[in-house]
Design a protein around this nucleic acid. Structure first.
Lengths: 179, 179
DNA sequence: TTATCTATCTATAAATC
DNA sequence: TGATTTATAGATAGATA
């Protein structure tokens, strides 16, 4: 839609081209979201789900998308929320049991295969890379701009599956709202 | 940044101009998110939080941003998640008790003031308004485009504080990840 | 590949209706 | 107050290094 030629908005079949376009447009989208949030003093979050369903990119300073019961005003929505949380909690506990027994059974040998790699978790390079580009001047101190996450594989602690890394970037595996 | 004059990226102080810019740029951002999702076959969600902290706009087809325990691979993240869910559940139950006692005390008279208006919930007009614009041709059948939510105050059932309306638009009160 | 270039297309600020 | 117009800044598709 911008560039040497107009393109139709449909899936780019060539994998390489799709990746190139993704990188370019993701950068543009993040910049636009940042500008909207600053210009209009509005809370904007941009979420992208990786093909594996892991939430890998979002606005900084977010803690967790969670319901806020204090603002709920009816028994109906409170009970719907309660039920959902109970269901989730049950599935978490079940997962713990499953993981625990699996680890016990195989000890230390084969569970390596279950662990996620750095690329699984942060497979989208240069998220919020303001500060390394010409934008440095006007955005590097903004709350929209998290510290760089590049070159920090060693402190990511992916091996422990931590939920929040040093830069407050969430890495829960989230249900994708799509697909 | 585009138009008759270059503007600096900082809060627009004039309330009217801020609103105008918000409308224009929100539309542009949504379009860009849509295009990225289609071109690159990627899951993109765009969330905006109202000044009251209520999540009022997002991509269609989403159910809930919730952790997916089945994809968690370590006890550490499972336990962090479990603790968070427990805390949430407790606050939901407390809120229920609080609401319940308040309703009992005042019966039916003053609780109207606690209820949210349509504008509180959907105070951002023309969310995903493709289909009313020139984009009609290429996006009206896309999954990125939810059915129109305009003129449907009567079936919103805001009085009951329902969590999900007829168009699968979530209306939990969410914690804003900002501010 | 991964980054840079640039002609061209799109988004939008300000003006106008 | 909101919709439309238009000139210009910005984003980016394809090319190139």
């Amino acid at each position: 839609m911008m560039g040497r030629a107009k393109i139709e908005i449909k899936r780019i079949e060539n994998k390489t081209n799709r990746g190139v376009t993704y990188s370019k447009r993701r950068k543009g989208l993040i910049k636009k979201a940042y500008e909207l949030s600053v210009l209009c003093d509005t809370d904007v979050a941009l979420l992208m789900f990786s093909p594996t369903g892991r939430l890998t990119s979002f606005s900084p300073k977010q803690s967790m998308y969670e319901p806020d019961p204090g603002k709920m005003t009816s028994m109906e929505e409170l009970e719907a929320c309660e039920k959902q949380l109970e269901t989730l909690l049950i599935s978490v506990v079940k997962r713990k049991m499953s993981l625990s027994s699996k680890v016990k059974a195989t000890e230390e040998e084969s569970n390596e295969a279950d662990l996620l790699s750095y690329d699984d978790v942060f497979n989208q390079p240069q998220i919020f890379d303001y500060g390394t580009t010409s934008e440095r001047n006007n955005v590097s101190t903004s709350t929209m701009v998290p510290p760089d996450i590049k070159g920090s594989k060693s402190n990511m602690n992916v091996e422990k599956g931590q939920a929040i890394n040093d830069n407050n970037i969430l890495s829960w595996p989230y249900m994708s709202p799509f697909k």
